[in-house]
């Protein structure tokens, strides 16, 4: 079966999953993931907010080597394939940092439209497929 790397940060397995952030009732600052106090006004009126699924790519890079533990991918230097990482602006609500399904610098463009997706990441010790969030060109 499939399970999410971090079940608490998205509405997966909804068909159109959304990331779960929080929004400040006083100053409307939005965070991802959720947090109890507002990082802008320090207030405690934070409530859960489902984040938009679509956005634009503000900035990006590639990850060209295996991250150190506790990275969960489990690849070796030989099997590792570089992946993209980007800062994505979801509508005018928030910018979220996440993996990109595209890793070719020739195909990654500043300002390109992207959409949230859930992708297979690794298979855990129980044989379950662990999925994680990423942004794909839309």
């Amino acid at each position: 079966m499939q399970k999410a790397l971090a079940p608490e940060i998205s509405t997966w397995p909804d068909e159109q999953p959304q990331l779960i952030g929080s929004r400040c009732g006083d100053c409307s600052a939005t965070t991802f993931p959720t947090q109890a106090l507002c990082p802008r006004c320090s207030g405690d009126k934070m409530s859960d907010e489902l984040l938009p699924r679509r956005g634009t790519l503000i900035a990006w890079t590639t990850q060209g080597f295996v991250p150190k533990l506790p990275y969960a991918g489990g690849e070796t230097a030989e099997t590792f394939k570089p992946f993209g990482v980007g800062l994505v602006q979801l509508d005018d609500v928030i910018r979220v940092e996440g993996r990109l399904t595209e890793s070719d610098p020739e195909k990654l463009k500043f300002g390109m439209d992207v959409e949230l997706t859930m992708v297979p990441f690794y298979t855990d010790a129980d044989g379950d497929e662990v999925i994680t969030f990423a942004f794909a060109p839309a």
Binding site: A6, I9, I58, T61, K68, Y71, A72, R99
Partner: peptide
């Protein structure tokens, strides 16, 4: 930071420097 941030392969300081420099 949440554990998933590292497990997902984003907890890499050089990655941030790549994003910032690229932009």
């Amino acid at each position: 930071l949440p554990a998933w941030y590292a497990e997902n392969g984003q907890y890499v300081t050089t990655q941030f420097f790549g994003i910032k420099a690229n932009r």
